[in-house]
Design a protein around this nucleic acid. Structure first.
Lengths: 339, 339
DNA sequence: ACCCCGGTTGTTCTCGGTAACATTCTCCGA
DNA sequence: TCGGAGAATGTTACCGAGAACAACCGGGGT
């Protein structure tokens, strides 16, 4: 613990103090077998004495591994992507990896190609893409990439590793919930269909609605924003035929509730509203929002596990599908006809 | 653009193709003066031909500079810290830096000391701490650190570089707004006073309230969460003497509105509520929330600028104070006595 | 013609680790 | 007692860049 004033110690200084060669120190650091316990002890003492930390940059140069994962986040403002990024960071750190995020801002000049280039130039060992648009995925598909790439998306993909939130199950649970309450005519307010998550929720919605035999009704395509949903709800000329709206995220659900309120309709008396995400504020909407909770922590773990397997050449675990959970709150109730 | 099948090219391969030494290539890469235009052209052509990218890890080892900034984020769930992180990442990237974030989860075993250790071991050139608690700052103050460290906090600090959101001006504008509406008795629902931002807002609130000569009233200390504010509001036994509540963030403001609603009080008729942050959903609270907007983009730019100056040994710009803007919406109105 | 000087380019070393191969011990069986 | 296998450790090369210094080049002054 001394080493005041001197520069950062390196492996050879440690070796000198321990009276061994620097390779022996390296072996101790990397837990190689066949080190005499006594030698190992002396090395560890020298490390302690100098408060030595291995230089990860030098190690990265020698091993050609940075132990860093590049994460491309689209729409870094949204709750989901942000939570996923944090979960990935946490889980990466727990296994000795670190994370370099890069945000693809909407309307920004940065293309997926450039983002990948940037991160590969940084030397990341693997890439993780969160919440992408299908156009981005198409662009990524065309890039000849030298590192493992994982996309967090609903469906498996032959080109990439994938981990997915079970959008299908989540959406199904929403439809089932509404049908159980007595709804037979439901509007889906989707996200932009260019987004894979929006598309997955929309497809699952149709599938489940059809299997219940309820009215086929065109969806409304939103842009994830509360503003859009507000304008839509505010613009309703009369109480619609449908009795419930399933919004593809909580922001839009919030905008709906607000717009319906301003239009003079009350949720859930006149219309039920359900969201997707379970943002922390969902409980405190007026009324509290029925929504779907996703286990981002589990997702982060799965992402890192799969990427590590790919990086380290181990067997790659099968596609992981993260479960969801319906959280029923006050914004959904029996439809007006039924009561 | 050939180079199919071969490994990543290095600087010497470029040199060979260009018919020069690797140092000449290095000089071209780093824009050294005194390179013959013709030589430079040949080198650039070779770079193009091989699609060569410098290996940043090797460069970092040679220069002892990683061009990476470590960012420690407390409370990575909140809107503010998340936005700041993204702004810092964006601004860093624009100047050739990248970012390694690390989240200090509440109740997590990770101490500020360990976070710093982790990042320093990663080899970052500088550290940025976002939204810290005073206990964390105290801990950081005790750490002998070898890289520049910047803390995003309200007040200048002799130990660290600082960039700050002008909490004082923001809070003042809230008080002025409420006073202008006619309020003379305002409750402040603060964040945990261990948090510097909470403390700054609380102090500014008291100062401004006193300068207006309005009633001195004990504040209520919350925990940033909507849940806490909800419980507080729900637990009111009668309409209180104060006519407005200034919540230290939008989440708590939302919880207040919800709790007051469930308690049978209406905002802003019975009570005005003002928040702080201007989260995207603030517009869509019922009623829409009066709050304070902060320019996170400018903050990110200032952070990176200051850290680069410190890293590269340039003059360090003076303390930057990022302005705020009051956004008046429906949750604040004239008090009941006045109308 | 010689020297000097600055512009230009090359050689060698270094950064701090790991990989590959070499060497020295040690213990055991022939 | 010696050989040999495997354990333990050392030596050297290498990862891919930049820094420091050396060398070469051509033109102007004397």
């Amino acid at each position: 613990m001394a080493n005041v004033g001197s520069d950062k110690p390196n492996i050879r200084q440690v070796a000198t103090i321990a009276g061994v060669s620097h390779m022996t120190v390296s072996r101790v650091l990397n837990d190689h077998p066949n080190i005499k316990p006594d030698t190992k002890r002396r090395v560890l003492e020298a490390i302690e004495e100098l408060d030595y930390r291995p230089n990860l940059v030098a190690r990265a140069l020698a091993t050609q591994r940075t132990r860093r994962i590049g994460v491309i986040v689209e729409s870094a403002v949204a709750h989901g992507p942000t939570s996923i990024l944090r979960a990935v960071e946490l889980s990466a750190r727990a296994t000795g990896y670190s994370v370099t995020p890069i945000a693809l801002h909407e309307g920004d000049a940065l293309s997926p190609q450039e983002a990948v280039d940037h991160l590969v130039t940084q030397g990341v060992d693997a890439l993780c893409v969160i919440a992408p648009r299908s156009s981005s995925v198409a662009a990524l598909r065309r890039i000849a990439i030298t590192v493992p790439m994982l996309v967090v998306k609903a469906d498996a993909d032959p080109t990439f590793l994938t981990v997915s939130i079970d959008q299908h199950a989540g959406t199904t649970s929403v439809v089932d919930h509404l049908v159980a309450l007595g709804h037979r005519d439901i509007l889906h307010l989707s996200g932009p269909l260019d987004w894979l998550d929006a598309r997955a929720r929309e497809r699952a919605f149709h599938t489940r609605a059809k299997s219940w035999g309820i009215r086929e009704r065109p969806i409304v395509v939103g842009d994830w924003s509360a503003d859009f949903a507000y304008d839509f709800a505010k613009g309703l000329t009369r109480l619609p035929d449908y009795t419930a709206i399933f919004a593809a995220n909580d922001d839009m659900a919030m905008g709906l509730i607000h717009g319906l309120h301003d239009r003079g309709f009350e949720v859930p008396r006149d219309l039920s509203v359900v969201g997707f995400d379970d943002i922390p504020l969902a409980r405190h909407f007026i009324p509290p929002l029925t929504t779907v909770r996703q286990d981002f922590g589990a997702l982060g773990v799965a992402v890192v596990e799969m990427l590590r397997a790919a990086i380290e050449g181990r067997d790659i675990p099968a596609l992981t599908r993260i479960p969801t959970e319906l959280v029923a709150r006050g914004s959904s109730a029996a439809p007006r006809e039924v009561r």
